[in-house]
Design a protein around this nucleic acid. Sequence first.
RNA 1: GGUACCAUAGCUCAGUUGGUAGAGCAACGGACUGAAAAUCCGUGUGUCGCUGGUUCAAAUCCCGCUGGUACCA
Length: 295
Amino acid sequence: MKLITILGPTATGKTKLAAHLAFRANGEIIGADSRQVFRKMNIGTGKDYEDYIVEGTLIPYHLVDIMEPGEEFSVFDFYKGFVSAFNEISGKGKLPILCGGTGLYLESVLKRYLLMEVPENIELRKGLSAKDENELIEILSGLKSLHNTTDTVCKDRLVRAIEIEYFHKENPAKQPQWPEFESYVFGVNYERSVVMKRITSRLKTRLDNGMVEEVESLIRSGVKKDRLKTYGLEYKYVTQYLEKEIDYNEMFRLLNIAIHQFSKRQMTWFRRMERNGINIYWIDGNMPIEDKVDL
RNA sequence: GGUACCAUAGCUCAGUUGGUAGAGCAACGGACUGAAAAUCCGUGUGUCGCUGGUUCAAAUCCCGCUGGUACCA
């Protein structure tokens, strides 16, 4: 079995390329984008349904529009979705094409992360519920090195993180059911200054196309503002604008910078993957879509 | 035309009584295994507008020039 991966920083036309490849090679797309999984988050996530249509044919896609905005979705949920989509596609004799820009999700597949279903541990939870946040942070940092504070902002997440670490310690031998595949990874990229220009002009288009209204309607439908802010970028800054924390020009300026920085962080992931032995065949974004020859 | 003020990092600016410069933002590099578009760590990148002078020593004081801002004509 083969797995083709198409990755790259934001605003480089990955989806379009993946769709053309799928059209040519009888494939289906598996999204590796942590924000496009949410329905009704379209303009802000750069979800463009047109991209999936090649010469009038709709290319089937997976792991896009599978959650309601505001719901929880994690690498593990992605992993499960990936495995079942991969099996379904290859079961039909078609070619799975993983396409997206979320480094963690891509790496979880390409480096075959050890991820297992971790059941709730009632007994452990009972013991932990008596402790305060600082004690929990201490316990967690004894189990793993803490790289971020997303795990430690609230008690629920702390308890869950500890639960997962305990489970891994107690069940070290359990390997997840990874499908076997020959992996080919392609990266789409432009010179950094070009990516930045593309980001800026795309941001203008998005605003003209109703991005602010999209966020407004998410808020109206009951998505919490704090939740929107954790979605980052467009959702964070537009929410701040709607909250009148910043004015329109400031929103544009800060958001534009934040997306530039995001694309840089994405490249950090890709470089690291290469250092860790994943071969990425880079494709110049300026090249016409006819670079599917590489199959 | 006259007077005053300003000119320091990519940007906005600090820089005490002279001892060859430093913050914020940007930029750049990195980390990352259950929210990852999140979260966090590291790095100063400089003809101190130009020219001449005073001084052991000038971003700092003086002359002139250039550019800008404000006010007076």
